[in-house]
């Protein structure tokens, strides 16, 4: 069970990030979590937000290069070592985590990540009794 994430191609020059954020503001979309990965010339801005489908349409209308992608979100206990345990489970199953970011919500940590094999990642999540977060549950945060 994956959730929708927006991936936005942004060039490293001033004004590009503002263009994205302004478009989201106009559309009354709220950001739940986000991260930017960068190279010298461009970056990918990844974000989880309210109403991802509508957000995607609004961004496209504003001329932003955006793609929808699917990522997992799992909740882990708010204590040291839990992220290591979770990642180890995937690593032992030879599943690559392409990227990951996280945030703390009330008393739990939320890990957002993408894998190279969603089907097997789902099996590992189930087998290890990890607490997976649905899109609905995530939307209820805003």
């Amino acid at each position: 069970m994956t959730i929708h994430q927006l991936s936005i191609f942004i060039e490293n020059r001033s004004g590009t990030l503002i263009k994205v954020l302004d478009a989201l503001k106009e559309a009354n979309i709220q950001i739940i979590a986000s991260t930017i990965a960068d190279t010298a010339d461009y970056g990918i801005y990844r974000l989880i937000c309210s109403e991802p489908m509508r957000a995607c349409d609004e961004l496209k209308r504003a001329g932003v290069a955006v793609a929808l992608s699917e990522v997992f979100v799992i909740a882990i206990d708010n204590e040291p070592g839990r992220a290591a345990d979770a990642v180890k489970a995937f690593s032992q199953a030879d599943i690559d985590i392409t990227y990951m970011y996280s945030f703390l919500n009330e008393n739990r940590g939320l890990l957002i990540f993408r894998t190279n094999d969603n089907e097997r990642a789902q099996q590992i999540i189930t087998a290890n009794n990890m607490q997976i977060i649905s899109e609905e549950a995530l939307q209820s945060l805003v």
Partner: peptide, 11 residues
């Protein structure tokens, strides 16, 4: 780019 992507390595 014709299509944005979520995949850095691809870029």
């Amino acid at each position: 780019l014709a299509q944005p992507t979520d995949d850095f390595k691809q870029l």
